[in-house]
Amino acid sequence: MEIFAQQIVNGLVLGSIYALVALGYTMVYGILGLINFAHGDITMIGALVSLTVIQLLAAAGVPAPVILVLAGGSAVLVCAILGLSIERIAYRPLRRAPRLAPLITAIGVSILLQYSAALIWGKQYISLPEIIEPAQFTIFGAQLTSLQAAIFLLACTIMAGLLWFIKASRMGRAMRATEQNPDVAGLMGVNTNTVIAFTFVLGSAIGAIAGLMVVLYYGLGHYFMGFMLGLKAFTAAVLGGIGNVGGAVLGGLLLGIIESLAAGYIGDLTGGVLGSNYRDIFAFLVLVLVLVLRPSGLLGQPGGERA
């Protein structure tokens, strides 16, 4: 029972990070019908930018809270500009092209980002300097650090804010209208190019925060880290119903919990043959099961191509 509670807590924290990244996939898919495979790598750039900022400022003796705010701020800024440029340079010229063209372009952008990062940061793992000493406390028999709690609360705040923004703001309504019928949105006075660019900026900025969280959570960064994170977040988006913002949140949290529970019990279940390092299997097992059993995802509308 203690393992169970512990894995649920771990899963929620991890899942909230997946959910943030999944939002970037699902928002772009909703509005363009494009799986932006470069999104995981944008998150990686956010992670590495924040690592560098943390290293520089920690060496200069800046207080930890200031470091964290500046690291997050720089990551958001860099990723927002990156997202905006990628949309403008790589995807917009292909807006009216067959669907396969932008998809392959997305994979190309992903590789470009990975190896640009390898050039800038090198191929070795970069570790996080010790700037914070999280307090430990116990909740329902599970150990939780103040860092984990902070990550989870911040992620939930961002998600709630985003859901509210899409539901209630003028821009959010324009995003939904563009998603449902871009031509008619144009007739209403919406500059759909601006809305699409804004969607990329928003998704990338949220991805940047997720990147910072991953760095703080694992204490490591690497030029290839966006690949696995991106695949899992994509799985989370599909699990929730790709294109559905609430679904991305649900899918992310669920995937985090499934993965943590599996990691906690896999050793016992297989008599010690498989260890918790096999946890990644479960994310993709989930992806396969969803694609077979309910391709439209938990909250997607069955049957619709847009789902």
């Binding site: 449902q180 019928n181 031509d183 949105a185 006075g189």
Partner: peptide
């Protein structure tokens, strides 16, 4: 007609007032 199917009637009208 081109209504936004998953926006409510009010939201559709509000889109008309977007400008």
């Amino acid at each position: 007609r081109g209504v936004f199917p998953r926006l409510t009637v009010v939201e559709n009208l509000a889109m008309g007032a977007y400008i």
